[in-house]
Simulated assay, not measured.
Amino acid sequence: MTAVSTPVITTVSEATRRAKRRGTALAVLAWFVGVVFVLPVLWMLLTSFHSETDAATNPPSLAASLTLDGYKEFFGSGGGASPWPALLNSMGTSIFSTCFVLVLALPAAYALSIRPVRKWTDVMFFFLSTKMLPVVAGLLPVFLFARDISFLDNVWLLVILYTSMNLPIAVWMMQSFLADIPVSIIEAAQMDGARLPTILWRVVAPIAGPGIAATSLICFIFSWNEMLFAQVLTGVVAQTAPAFLTTFVTSQGLFLAKVCAASMVISLPVLAAGFAAQDKLVQGLSLGAVK
C-alpha cells in the first residue's frame, strides 16, 4: 500500500510546486507590467513639481528642488486663463453624455439579449461598424453641419457627439452583461404586472449594476479624454480640459513643468472615478467571461 501511494504523493507535491512557481512568475510579471505602465505617470507627477529650468534639463535631475509654481501657473496665478470653465465643460459633457448613453443603451441591450430581435447579430455588427470609420473622416462634415445651424462652440454639440460615439460600445458591453440575467426573473416580474420601464429600472438595472457601472466609467473616460472634436468644434465658451491643455504649447516653446501639472490636474477626475469604482469595473468586465 505504501509503495503504491508514495509515487502518487510525490507527483501531487511536484505538481503543486510547479503551480506555485507559475503563480509566482505570473505575479512578478504582473507587477513588472504594472510598474512599466505607472512609471510614466509617476515621472510626470515628479516633473510637475519641478521648476521649468529643472524640468528642461537633459538628463533630468531626480534630486531637483520641488515647487508648486507649475500648479500655480495652471490655475492662473501668473495672469493666464483660468482652467475652471474648461474643467466644468469637460465634467458637464462627460456626465450628461454618459447618462444619455445609459438611457439609450439599456433598452437596446435588453432588446438584443433578453428579448432578441430577428438577426440580432447583424444589428450588433452594425453598431460595431460605426466605430470603424476614422474619426477624422467625419470631422469636416460635422463641422460644416454645426456651422450651418450655428451650433459651433456649444457644449450640447459635444454632448450629442459623445453620446453617439460611445453608444455602440455601450450597447456591446451591456448586451453581454444582460445576456447573463435569467429570463425567469423577467417572466416573474411580467406575471406580477410589471411593464417594460419597470422591468428595466427595477429588475434589470439592479442585477446588471456592475456591468452598468463598468460601462458608464468607460464612457465617462472616453468622453473626458476626447480632444479632436473638442479642439475643432469649440472655441472659448465650450472649450474642454484636453483642448485647454493644448494652449500651453505655444510658439515660445513647451513649458514642460506647467504641462505636466495641467495633465495631472486634468487626469484627477478620471483617476478618482476609476479608483472609486474599481471593484465594480473588474466585476462588470468579468461578467460573462466564464460560462
Rank of each mutant, 00 (worst) to 15 (best):
M227A: 12
L268Q: 08
G284M: 04
V155M: 13
L88T: 07
M44K: 08
F100R: 00
A108Y: 01
A64I: 03
A289Q: 10
F244V: 05
R147L: 10
L39V: 10
S82R: 08
S90F: 02
S51Y: 05
S184K: 10
I199C: 04
G288V: 02
A208Y: 01
L87N: 04
A109V: 03
V8E: 15
S263A: 14
L106K: 02
L167C: 03
V101H: 00
F255Y: 14
S251F: 10
G138Q: 11
L152W: 04
S263Y: 09
F100M: 11
A276Y: 12
P85T: 07
L268E: 01
Y110T: 04
P182Y: 06
T234F: 09
V265K: 09
N154S: 12
T250I: 07
A108W: 01
T10S: 14
A170G: 05
S164Q: 11
V103Y: 01
D180T: 09
V101C: 03
L102A: 11
L26A: 14
V249M: 12
S90R: 00
Q190I: 05
L196N: 03
T53A: 15
W120Y: 12
K72N: 12
A213W: 01
A55K: 07
V270P: 04
T130H: 06
F220T: 04
V142L: 15
F127P: 03
T53W: 14
L45T: 10
A230D: 05
V183M: 13
I149S: 02
W224G: 05
A111L: 09
A213F: 03
L157V: 11
G211C: 02
R202M: 04
V282H: 07
V8R: 15
S113V: 04
T163V: 07
K119I: 13
T53K: 15
V117K: 12
F37P: 01
D148M: 10
F125P: 03
V8D: 13
I218L: 15
I181Q: 04
V204W: 00
L233C: 06
A109P: 01
W43V: 09
V103W: 00
M1Y: 13
V232R: 03
S97Q: 06
V171P: 01
A213I: 10
D180A: 09
L217M: 04
W224L: 09
S94L: 02
T246A: 15
Q190D: 12
T246P: 11
I266Q: 11
W43S: 07
P269S: 07
L217C: 02
V8F: 13
A179M: 11
L45A: 14
F127G: 03
S97W: 07
G76K: 04
W43A: 09
P83A: 08
